[in-house]
């Protein structure tokens, strides 16, 4: 369960046929490495006495998929690529990669083309993703150069479909164009993601904090922001805050 996609180097099961077409989601490459974990119990200050200290495990998210994606996914991908070509935008420039995983279609979009792609997805009659269910920020601190991800889920009520757009930005330049002009519902969602992750949505009408107090320092849901709990005292014992305890991940 724990080994990632059965990629070579981390516990290959000899009984499994690892040729590409047998792997779930037909992942073309070995997936993208987001983190390398050493040891077993998350002990990183020399306290690992478990005997698993030398274990090295790379954590990989599902990688790009190859055609055919299956079901209506191909139709949506074809339509999107065709519509982008009509606008003289090479699909390869806008769509970084396409991932099919868990029966869900994800387009990784280059951030400079996000607004154009979203407008196309909303307006093209064959696509018609009318409803955006907001932005979810994810912070991958060890995914260098693309630490901050903004994930959009688009729903088409006309065609009863759902796709995901994923845009990434480096930590040093956390700018992603705002989708408020395309989906006004993203107003609060983008403010929330800015509040928690520090992603600056360029073009947002009023990008201010929304859930935290206005004078709050830092962006609390980033991985480098501590949980901020305090030790709890009982009779004769002190239990550390959840983020200070031993981790088993």
């Amino acid at each position: 369960m724990s080994d990632a996609n059965g990629t070579a180097g981390d516990g290959v099961n000899p009984e499994k046929d690892l040729s590409a077409e047998n792997l779930p989601g037909q992942r073309g490459d070995g997936g993208e490495e987001i983190r390398v974990q050493r040891g077993m119990f998350g002990a990183n200050n020399g306290g690992d006495t478990s005997g698993y200290g030398g274990l090295v495990r790379s954590v990989r998210l599902p990688g790009a998929s190859n055609r055919p994606y299956g079901g209506w996914f191909d139709e949506v991908a074809d339509e999107l690529e065709g519509a982008l070509e009509e606008q003289d935008l090479l699909p390869g420039n806008a769509i970084g990669k396409t991932v099919v995983d868990h029966d869900e279609l994800t387009f990784h979009i280059e951030r400079e083309h996000l607004v154009r792609v979203a407008t196309t997805l909303r307006d093209d009659p064959a696509l018609r993703f009318e409803l955006c269910t907001g932005v979810s920020g994810v912070h991958y601190p060890s995914d260098k150069g693309r630490e901050l991800h903004a994930v959009y889920h688009l729903r088409s009520i006309t065609h009863n479909r759902m796709i995901r757009l994923e845009v990434s930005a480096p930590d040093g330049d956390p700018h992603i164009p705002s989708l408020v002009s395309v989906y006004p519902t993203n107003d609060w969602h983008e403010r929330e993601t800015y509040d928690f992750f520090g992603i600056v949505f360029d073009g947002h009408p009023a990008l201010t904090r929304i859930l935290m107090p206005d004078d709050w320092q830092g962006h609390p849901q980033r991985k480098d922001y501590p949980l901020g709990g305090i030790p709890v005292e009982y009779k004769g014992a002190r239990i550390p805050a959840p983020d200070q305890r031993r981790s088993y991940s």
């Binding site: 369960m1 954590v59 998210l61 599902p62 995983d101 869900e104 269910t133 889920h153 759902m162 088993y248």
Partner: peptide, 15 residues
């Protein structure tokens, strides 16, 4: 109970 089960890497959206 202490460690819990592991979930394969990836993301999903359930509504």
């Amino acid at each position: 109970v202490t460690e819990g089960f592991r979930v394969p890497p990836g993301q999903t959206y359930a509504a």
